[in-house]
């Protein structure tokens, strides 16, 4: 009976994951391997294709041609400097990240017992967990050559991201290094859903008021994850331990990411951070 409960929990978290995260690993891997039947993603590999990629997305979202010049979203790129294009791309990434925070919050709320926790502790768990979750969610979108962005409509090459000016060029490379290794574990979407819930329910986040109920919830999800991995990957030895070890790498990645954003705030005069991301990163590490 206990195993049946754990399987029910795994199914519930998988269903929430599919409901709140629009691009699943299954879909992303299908796009990356060209098995979708739809057209291949638009490839961004240099500044010219970046501006064309913006145009590609804008045309899909705003098909009325007479609206385009007023939007100021990448037309007449001739006079625009690379710095401006990079900064605009960074702002778009921020908006997508803020939307990602909303998706992760909805997923967290669907974890049984989460909304019953002290509200301050819910805020703390999300503040410290959300960037870790977003980095894990990036892994299925990546391969060694680049990453899907814009809900899988665009593929941006790793070399192009490395060619951006400092410190933009340093932002994604550590995530690629992590993702290539993480993807070797070959987790599927159900494994991922349980792992994300384990990350969110970390009882050692600074400032938690009532740790015990969080640890109790995490323990149940950990049991569900262990059972899921044993059933789904019977030949993968020590997979449960290997997955949990990734949590240490994740904390370092988030610390480095936040330091880079703080550096950006000092060096880029025109940079405005999204208020939600500001809230999360303030006094984080």
């Amino acid at each position: 009976p206990e195993s049946a409960d754990l399987r029910t929990l795994a199914k519930h978290l998988y269903e929430s994951y599919v409901k709140y995260f629009p691009l699943t690993k299954a879909k992303a891997r299908a796009i990356l391997s060209g098995k979708t039947g739809d057209s291949a993603p638009f490839v961004i590999h240099d500044m010219k294709s970046l501006t064309e990629g913006e145009q590609f997305i804008n045309c899909k979202q705003m098909p009325l041609p007479d609206q385009r010049p007023e939007m100021g979203l990448g037309f007449g790129m001739g006079q625009e400097s690379a710095d401006e294009v990079e900064l605009r791309f960074f702002h778009r990434c921020q908006f997508r990240s803020a939307e990602g925070v909303r998706e992760v919050t909805e997923f967290a709320k669907s974890i049984p017992g989460f909304v019953g926790l002290d509200l301050n502790d819910q805020v703390t768990l999300l503040k410290y967990g959300v960037i870790e979750v977003l980095i894990i969610m990036m892994a299925p979108l990546m391969n060694k050559d680049g990453t899907l962005i814009s809900y899988g409509q665009i593929f941006m090459t790793r070399e192009f991201l490395k060619s951006l000016r400092k410190p933009f060029c340093e932002m994604m490379e550590p995530k690629f290094e992590f993702s290539v290794k993480f993807n070797m574990l070959e987790l599927d979407d159900c494994d991922m859903a349980l792992f994300l819930a384990v990350i969110i329910l970390s009882g050692d986040r600074p400032g938690l008021l009532n740790v015990k109920p969080i640890e109790d919830l995490q323990e149940t999800v950990l049991h569900a994850l262990e059972l899921q991995l044993k059933m789904n990957h019977p030949d993968s030895l020590q997979l449960f331990a290997k997955v949990l070890q990734k949590m240490t790498d994740l904390r370092q990645l988030v610390t480095d990411h936040v330091h880079l954003i703080q550096l950006l705030k000092k060096t880029e005069i025109d940079l405005c951070l999204h208020p939600l991301l500001q809230e999360i990163m303030k006094d984080l590490y």
């Binding site: 919050t105 999300l126 809230e279």
Partner: peptide
């Protein structure tokens, strides 16, 4: 803590549409 995290708090209390963000 929730006072310093008004948007997160709002997201936890109600779902917010992408446009609001």
């Amino acid at each position: 803590l929730k006072e310093k995290h008004k948007i997160l708090h709002r997201l936890l209390q109600n779902s917010t549409s992408p446009v609001d963000l």
